[in-house]
């Protein structure tokens, strides 16, 4: 927790992907902090507690100086006398916290997140890994089923119109890439990643209508959702040549 907001970081058990989630202080009804605070929490326990709250409930998260637990108070909005309190004890993660250095990416595309989710799902049916290539003209996601020889490919061409936003939920321009593509393209880049982790990242589509894919040769793939209250980033380690 810092004066800007709350930053969460987590890693999967196989250490293939790292998730970073930033929630700005503006997404909270009130946000008070005396000093920066770093907590290691079991995400399952935190999720279990937060799921006890209904959509309209008020959740208050509290941790004191040298605290060993995060206290979550859940209050019913129209019945403020009705409060339940839950403690989530801290755990020791040791050195599992990582510093993510900001690197200049070679290419960035932004596509509709629902389309991205469909792409990840479809290619995962074919193969455990896929190749992502971004060239000047667009981007290509390819998966090959080595058993049957079937190959699946999704191509995104650079949008001709700068703001090819959809007018309604149903009016989705096929394969359109939003204009940020121009600004972030420096050189043709390709990466191979596990489809399983791409599917995982793509499931966060409800957060934002758009998702960005950023790449740099031999660096983790970055799948990023920007939204008003913050940003969600998935870093996925590539499969590299032996």
């Amino acid at each position: 927790c810092s004066k800007e907001g709350i930053m969460l970081q987590g890693m999967d058990e196989f250490h293939i992907s790292l998730v970073e989630f930033f929630l700005s202080k503006r997404s909270f009804e009130s946000y008070a902090l005396c000093h920066d605070l770093c907590m290691s929490l079991p995400i399952d326990s935190l999720a279990t507690v937060l799921k006890k709250a209904n959509d309209d409930d008020v959740c208050t998260l509290k941790a004191g100086h040298k605290a060993k637990v995060l206290t979550v108070a859940i209050e019913t909005r129209d019945q403020p006398w009705l409060v339940s309190k839950h403690d989530v004890p801290f755990i020791d993660l040791g050195s599992e916290y990582l510093v993510i250095s900001r690197i200049p990416y070679d290419a960035k595309i932004t596509v509709w997140s629902t389309r991205f989710a469909r792409l990840a799902h479809e290619l995962h049916q074919l193969s455990g890994s896929l190749d992502i290539q971004i060239i000047h003209e667009g981007a290509r996601f390819t998966a090959l089923d080595e058993g049957s020889g079937k190959k699946g490919c999704f191509i995104f061409r650079r949008a001709k119109v700068v703001d090819e936003y959809r007018d309604s939920e149903d009016d989705e321009p096929a394969g359109a890439i939003i204009h940020e593509f121009h600004r972030y393209f420096h050189k043709a880049t390709s990466l191979r990643v596990s489809t399983k982790y791409l599917v995982h990242a793509s499931k966060r589509a409800p957060l934002s209508s758009k998702v960005s894919v950023l790449m740099k040769e031999d660096q983790p793939l970055l799948v990023q959702y920007d939204f008003y209250e913050g940003v969600l980033k998935f870093y996925i380690a590539p499969r590299i040549a032996d």
């Binding site: 890693m11 990582l98 499969r239 590299i240």
Partner: peptide, 14 residues
């Protein structure tokens, strides 16, 4: 052939 790299190898521990 390709092998899966570990995400920890790209980022540093503080």
């Amino acid at each position: 052939t390709r092998s899966q790299s570990s995400i920890s190898s790209y980022f540093q521990a503080p």
